[in-house]
Design a protein around this nucleic acid. Structure first.
Length: 152
DNA sequence: CCCTGATTCGC
DNA sequence: GCGAATCAGG
């Protein structure tokens, strides 16, 4: 299928309307989304929706392994409280993960969180620290408890 | 796994 | 010029 003037015009039209390359390809038929993208590029049109990489800096650079600080020592922050497991924690308890999620010893902080927050005051603070350049260790998404096999 | 556009490269 | 394969991201 060649790019006739009609088809190119239609391509421009649809692309201008904000349709995705695959949508256009599907609508026009006879072309794949790759063909559409390729043509769009050659036409000089490009990039409006979902640039996929809007970052002008550090393109294709993979330095700094990103230190992964294991969560240790937190167990001692709140001694003597219940250490809920995945199955027992409730909505008002801090869901900060403690220990190795693959381990049987894994549990959550369990401090009362209230305030609608997923973490207790301390862990909220830790979790949402302003970006100082180093990332927090992996933590459980606030919205969903993980499916972790505690035993067996 | 679905999708997005971007780029490369043989044709 | 073309577009599949590949890439990089959401």
């Amino acid at each position: 299928m060649a790019w006739t003037e009609e088809r190119v015009d239609q391509l421009k039209q649809l692309w201008g309307e904000g349709l995705s390359a695959s949508q256009i390809a599907n609508k026009m038929g006879g072309v794949t989304r790759n063909a559409v993208i390729g043509k769009v590029h050659r036409l000089g049109l490009a990039g409006r929706a979902t640039p996929a990489a809007p970052k002008p800096k550090t393109v294709q650079r993979y330095d700094e392994p990103e230190l992964k600080t294991p969560i240790t020592g937190l167990e001692n922050l709140y001694p003597g409280i219940d250490r809920p497991t995945v199955s027992s924690i409730d909505g008002n308890q801090c869901k900060w993960p403690i220990g190795d999620p693959t381990s049987e010893e894994f549990h959550f902080c369990g401090q009362p969180s209230n305030h609608g927050k997923p973490y207790c005051a301390y862990h909220s603070q830790v979790a949402f620290q302003p970006n100082t350049g180093r990332r927090e260790p992996k933590r459980i998404a606030p919205t969903a408890l993980p499916k972790i096999k505690v035993a067996g």
